[in-house]
Design a protein around this nucleic acid. Structure first.
Lengths: 340, 340
DNA sequence: CCACATTGTGGGAACGTTCCCATGAGAAGA
DNA sequence: TCTTCTCATGGGAACGTTCCCACAATGTGG
């Protein structure tokens, strides 16, 4: 079978002209006879010619491709961000190479190698929950490849970042709970290595302080985001001699798991215990009760991060700047925290 | 700045040997002196050398990349399929290039061009709801590039396909509804151009016939899968003089929308009306009531499709065969159709 | 001691583009 | 008529890899 794809050389031979001429005709070079261009275009069309990007990219030593490394694409959050980034990339004539770390550090390191070997022009990264060493990302800096972090970022790395104002969102959540009269608010948090999760915890603590609610260490739990463990922690909280009257979960999947336990106990929400999440999962609005949560501008986050990156690629900036783009969160109140 | 990535030539120069030797050392060629190999490896490590895939792929005239074209990645279905495909691809040393048609025919055509120009070794495609012409996919056959369709397939194209047994799944749904005593079962279907959706409709009709339930054309609606329209159709059904006592929705997102309307009317499920979906969306199990639906083996579908494709690439098959891989669906009964 | 295999290395083609530099033909100006 | 200029095209380098072929130095068998 003909494994050979048609090239400009094939076209050149057929028309008895040089490959240079064909190339010029196809790329729209001005100094080419209209008649020649016409012939070339027709044959290219007829033969289904498609430029070999590999050859072009090799010679141009740029791929017009940006890499995106995300922890996962199972929850709806990252796909939405990717969608935004992809749009911005496409508008600028860039392709997108996506890879997932599956929340594993080693896979993330492998992903960076894939990006390097495929010669992406820039990278968007949201780190895994395991990642604590950033040597693999430093490699990009050493090679002069622009990098932008989003959502799951690290302050240790001097690099532009796009995040939602987690502190503000979490603070609003706390004020909402407090305003409905809750006094014993538990927080099921995640690894405090993660910047945004740490910010949520800080807001939790600061809000307690501001409203003169004593902090009870029993009510603050940091877990590893492994959803299967949520049950254990929620049961622990409910079994306390003085159980919480509200639960602020670090994200929606956690809150959803928690709600299952609470329902199974026959407790009523929000009276017995109010529950809030963070990041508006697809399921949150359809649950019963609906889950109070924070809507993050996912699409905008993707767009912003991509635009930032494309700008760096365009300007050929060698220095990475420490820069924070902070997007606004939005509190949406549903039945899990307030009777409607 | 040094936009130049280190190449085997740089290493060769530094060590005063030829690029051939460096290449051999790195690829593990047997006839290389261990000492030389050692030196090369060390320098490569020190200089963070990463093979330039573009150059390799150009010369090998294969990219070890498979393309995947899907309608969207917003619902959980396609991401899960992609995940399965990606796993299989990775195990075989292949990368994956993902693109979405956003359910638009023209975007899908553009996507195929991206695949061609990036010289993917094979393509997995799930067509958009608009697609009725398959010339763009025929191009792959003409160029000898293997293609496998999955989920959203077309019988017009002589090509291997991986699908779930939609007929069986839909038939089981119908038997379940009938067994709970439902007599007036509505079906909110989609474009019958789509093979799997057509199969579901056929099962609906056949089940009615088998159980001697008269078919009422009023109860069968085909819509364009634009979720915003679901409200209209459900209201229409509920307002019929003789409204349905069960609704079989073509997929879960449709069912979820329908349930919102039904709840708003204050009707109770499943007594006033039972609702079932298809394809187990993330939200389905958390809703109240839980949504009865069909679990599709998404992960397995991705794996199977990718393996089929990789096999074709491997065997260098020029002829496309008409082949159906049919995966088993699984009925999961929840509160929307049966009291528990 | 000579023919011949073995070992390790180098040279250069090939993959398909683009782009710089030549080059030929014809037109324009003196 | 000769120089100069423009127009359209051709030739070949470059991008970074692998792999075929050549070849020198060493080892081996007669």
């Amino acid at each position: 079978m003909a494994r050979h794809q048609v090239t400009i050389i094939d076209i050149a031979k057929e028309l008895n002209i040089s490959k240079s001429t064909v190339s010029r005709a196809l790329t729209g070079h001005p100094s080419i006879k209209p008649e020649t261009r016409q012939k070339v275009m027709e044959l290219a069309e007829k033969w289904d010619y498609q430029k070999n990007m590999l050859a072009y990219q090799l010679m141009a030593s740029r791929t017009n491709t940006i890499g995106i490394i995300v922890p996962e694409i199972i929850t709806s959050f990252f796909p939405k961000v990717i969608l935004g980034a992809q749009e911005a990339a496409q508008e600028a004539g860039y392709n997108v190479l996506i890879s997932q770390s599956n929340e594993q550090y080693l896979t993330e390191v492998a992903n960076t190698k894939v990006m390097l070997t495929n010669r992406v022009d820039g990278v968007l990264v949201s780190i895994s929950k395991e990642t604590q060493n950033f040597e693999h990302l430093e490699t990009f800096r050493r090679k002069g490849i622009p990098l932008v972090m989003f959502n799951r970022v690290s302050t240790e790395l001097k690099v532009p970042k796009v995040v939602v104002d987690d502190y503000k969102g979490a603070f609003e959540i706390m004020e909402h709970l407090i305003s409905t009269g809750k006094k014993r608010i538990a927080h099921l948090s995640g690894p405090s290595k993660l910047y945004n999760i740490r910010k949520r915890k800080e807001a939790y603590l600061d809000a307690l302080k501001k409203y003169n609610i004593p902090f009870d260490p029993e009510l603050l739990i940091e877990y590893d985001l492994n959803l299967e463990r949520v049950k254990i922690y929620v049961k622990y909280l409910l079994d306390l001699p003085n159980p919480p009257d509200a639960l602020f979960a670090v994200n929606d999947p956690t809150a959803i798991e928690a709600i299952q336990v609470i329902k199974a106990r026959g407790l009523s929400m929000p009276d017995d215990i109010a529950v809030v999440g963070f990041s508006n999962d697809n399921a949150s609005q359809y649950m019963e009760p609906g889950l109070t949560t924070i809507i993050q501008p996912t699409h905008e986050m993707g767009r912003t991060a991509a635009q930032l990156l494309l700008n760096m690629i365009d300007k050929d900036v060698s220095e990475w700047k420490m820069l924070f783009k902070v997007l606004k969160p939005e509190l949406v109140i549903r039945g899990s925290s307030q009777k409607i």
